[in-house]
Design a protein around this nucleic acid. Structure first.
Lengths: 213, 213
DNA sequence: CGCCGCTGTCACGAAAGCGTCGCGCCGCGG
DNA sequence: CCGCGGCGCGACGCTTTCGTGACAGCGGCG
């Protein structure tokens, strides 16, 4: 019924009966967003959401969960798991579509593929790899995302809040100072290549990636 | 109860019992965001949200609505009215605060961007950077704001109290003479570039940023 | 089950700004 | 020429902000 409504709204839904089927469908083509029922055969929808957030392929894909009444109290857990929004059953087709559009609007930013080169640093989005000159840089997942965001948005200050929104995702709640730590870790990984001053702190404002010191 | 929770989270809530009281409170000081109950005495919260969206003063202020269960079906109307998010009662303080922060992060984006160039000085709001010719100028946060204000309001005298209002913000009380000190500091940072006479003293009136000495 | 990489949070210390004070100079009116 | 208010400026505590090491939790993997 939901699929029918979405199709009527000009979307192209793919239906999966359980997590396993969903996985193979995603492997075939990564969707623009995922509509996930709270209750799944075999595992909880929340658990599956966490798994989707962990895998590189689906990390950026927004998730809307369908919950029945009385399950809302667990919502915080869902927000922690990186779920972008909720729709509570029973819902109208109109409401669902409005929510989907809102989430798409919010998250449909930039692509992770492509190659960016800047300041002696090269990042290959498709290969998920970073090069300093001709040697590859060993880097963790979060630092990678942070660096990638910085390199695609260079010469511009971002507050800790904005970085949390852009790099961590809009619906995960961590301390702002956590950004500092990852900045530090990013600088540390760039240090062997003498590139740590690409990441600059702007006192009272946030951080900036810039070629000029 | 909500106000208490917010205050504990370091926020500064102002409570209003109905739309009329809210209006006068807003007239006094425009809030950073508005938490709006679905049901209001006299008019629906939704209706009031629409009104807030229509007035210039509150158009940019994000709104979060508090709804009870069973009202979710009308949610679509809320999204249409320009409401930024919903919190469904009952909610935990943590959830509410998380939502507020998320909305603030999302909407509190742009301000003071753009590039201004004047008198051999260039200020890049996005990068939060100041250039004198082609070299970058090292500058502190307050001096930056002061300079930014001056460059966007050049050739005009501002009294100390006006500068305090515009640069420091209307809700902090500091000595007027403090302005002198920051003017001095601003001049000092411009001195190496021989640009210190852009900031001029108007005896008995205040200060002025001007290209002509 | 233990090891390991990664993450988020905390606590501590250093550094940078910030606001205030006080002194002295300067311009202006008497 | 003198007095006085206005302003420049160096100095000094105090607060805020940031860097950084440490640590516990959590999965993943052997």
């Amino acid at each position: 019924m939901v699929a029918f409504a979405l199709r009527k709204a000009g979307m192209d839904p793919v239906h999966a009966a359980d997590a396993r089927i969903a996985q193979s469908a995603i492997a075939e083509r990564v969707p623009d967003m995922i509509l996930l029922d709270w209750m799944l055969p075999g595992m909880s929808g929340l658990e599956y959401a966490r798994r989707l957030r962990k895998e590189d392929l689906t990390r950026e894909v927004p998730i809307i969960m369908l919950t029945a009444r009385g399950e809302e109290t667990d919502r915080v857990n869902g927000l922690d798991a990186g779920v972008d929004d909720y729709v509570v059953k029973p819902f109208s087709a109109r409401e669902l579509i409005a929510r989907i559009k809102a989430v798409m609007r919010r998250t449909h930013g930039d692509e992770g593929d492509g190659v960016v080169e800047l300041g002696g640093l090269r990042i290959d989005g498709a290969a998920h790899r970073v090069y300093a000159g001709d040697q590859t840089v060993q880097i963790g997942p979060t630092e990678y995302r942070l660096l990638h965001f910085f390199m695609t948005h260079a010469e511009r200050v971002y507050s800790r809040s904005q970085l949390l929104d852009q790099v961590w995702g809009g619906s995960v709640y961590v301390e702002e100072r956590t950004v500092d730590v990852h900045i530090r870790r990013l600088r540390k990984t760039l240090e062997p290549y003498k590139l740590e001053n690409l990441v600059q702190t702007v006192r009272g404002a946030g951080y900036r990636f810039s070629v000029t010191p």
